[in-house]
Simulated scan of single mutants.
Amino acid sequence: MSALVTGDAVVLGLQSARLPSRALALVIDLVVVWTAYLLVSIGLAVATASLDEAAGTAVAIASFLLVLVGAPIAVETLSHGRSLGKLACGLRVVRDDGGPIRFRHALVRGAMGVVEILMSFGVIACIASLVSARGRRIGDVFAGTLVVRERMPAGRAMVVVPPPPPWLVGRFTELDLSGVPDDLWLAIRQYLTRMRQLDPAVSWSMAQRLAGDLAACTGAPAPERVPPAAYLAAVVNERQARDARKAFGAAAGVGGGSQGRVVPGVAVTGDVALGRVTPGAFGPGGAVPGGVALEVADPQVAPVRDGAPGAGTPPVTGFAPPA
């Protein structure tokens, strides 16, 4: 599902990094880390000259693990997937669902990197990246991560996940999201960032299918009077809020959850605010057939335009754009 294909034969996917850019970023990182390792080794050799051979060996092994293995893991964790080389090349490590990586992802990548980069001089990593459809090395496969292009060429607009309507923020705080697979999260993110580019009927159909898959994974049915696209946006926002609270503490929030806050017009992917979207991101031409997007005083109930799905009943056919 990570390569979601629309009815218009448009593939919605992340722009994965290719081998040349990844290799250049790796060379920069290796130059920096090996320079640091040599300086640390020289300093330790002078400081421990009076120690016996066993103690000197232990210090050498510790410096190797801390500088060549531990330092890259710490940098990727604290920067959420951007080492110095990746920052210079406009790359970033993300989860398979497009979210920011955590310590466990960086740990697995770093541990596998000892074998496929340091011990094999990068040969194993290059071969794995060449045979992978998305350019992933073995560490990425085991960690469930992907290296993507963070900077796009000039003239290409950055796609962002639109925020949910304010009246849905915090509504899904009790929803169990542990059973939702990463490929479904990725498909939902990709749909939300590009739904305004799709034909309204195709967009509505895709939203209904993804909402059904999400409801099946959570074990709770989707709200009857909430449009499927709004439901998807609100659940993604809730997950982002939970990730932010785990990473930055209980006071953090990404516009969702009981402790989150609404950031009008700001679209957030993972924990990083990437930019702003035009108010009415779920408006005409979006996920509602016929371009129906009603702004009502009471968002729980809205009239239905003639000809729209569910005519003759009071369920919501659109939702108010973020104000």
Rank of each mutant, 00 (worst) to 15 (best):
A143I: 04
V108L: 15
D176M: 07
V292M: 04
V5D: 05
F103I: 08
V296W: 12
L84M: 14
G285C: 05
P299V: 07
G291D: 15
V94Y: 00
T57G: 14
R194C: 07
T218A: 13
P163D: 01
G90K: 02
P100D: 15
L168A: 06
A215F: 14
P162H: 09
R261H: 14
Q259S: 14
V262A: 04
L12Q: 06
G144W: 04
S79T: 15
P165I: 03
L4C: 12
A287Y: 07
A133Y: 04
G275S: 03
V114F: 12
I127C: 08
D182C: 05
V59H: 09
V236S: 02
E150D: 15
S63Y: 01
A244W: 01
A229M: 06
P303E: 09
D97T: 14
R22T: 05
R239E: 02
V67H: 13
R22N: 04
G135S: 11
P315A: 11
G280S: 03
R137D: 00
M158D: 11
F64M: 15
A106R: 04
P153D: 05
T317N: 13
S120L: 00
M158H: 07
P72D: 08
A216P: 13
L14T: 06
E238C: 03
Q300N: 15
L130C: 01
W34K: 00
R276V: 02
A251V: 06
R92Y: 03
G291F: 09
P223N: 06
P164T: 08
L232Q: 08
V266M: 02
L4E: 10
G307V: 12
G283I: 01
Q300P: 01
V161P: 00
A215G: 13
D52F: 09
A234V: 02
G170F: 03
G255P: 12
V304M: 11
V69D: 10
A133Q: 10
A54Q: 12
A106C: 06
V268E: 09
D96V: 04
M152H: 03
S83D: 06
E150Y: 04
L107P: 13
R22G: 05
V148S: 03
P279A: 03
V277L: 11
G249D: 10
M158A: 14
S21H: 07
P166M: 07
P284A: 14
Y37G: 11
P303I: 07
A71G: 03
C89N: 01
L78Y: 13
I42L: 14
V180W: 07
D8K: 10
L78R: 11
A244G: 07
G260F: 07
G249P: 11
I188L: 07
Q197S: 11
M195R: 11
T173C: 10
L184N: 05
V180Y: 10
Q197N: 05
E116A: 09
D29W: 07
W167K: 00
T193Y: 00
G212T: 15
D96S: 12
V114K: 10
F172T: 02
Q240A: 08
S178R: 15
P303L: 10
I101Y: 04
G122E: 09
P200G: 00
G70K: 09
L175Y: 08
V75Q: 11
V5P: 13
I101H: 08
K86C: 10
R239I: 00
G122H: 09
V147D: 03
V268I: 15
P284H: 05
P314R: 09
I124W: 02
Y231T: 06
I127S: 03
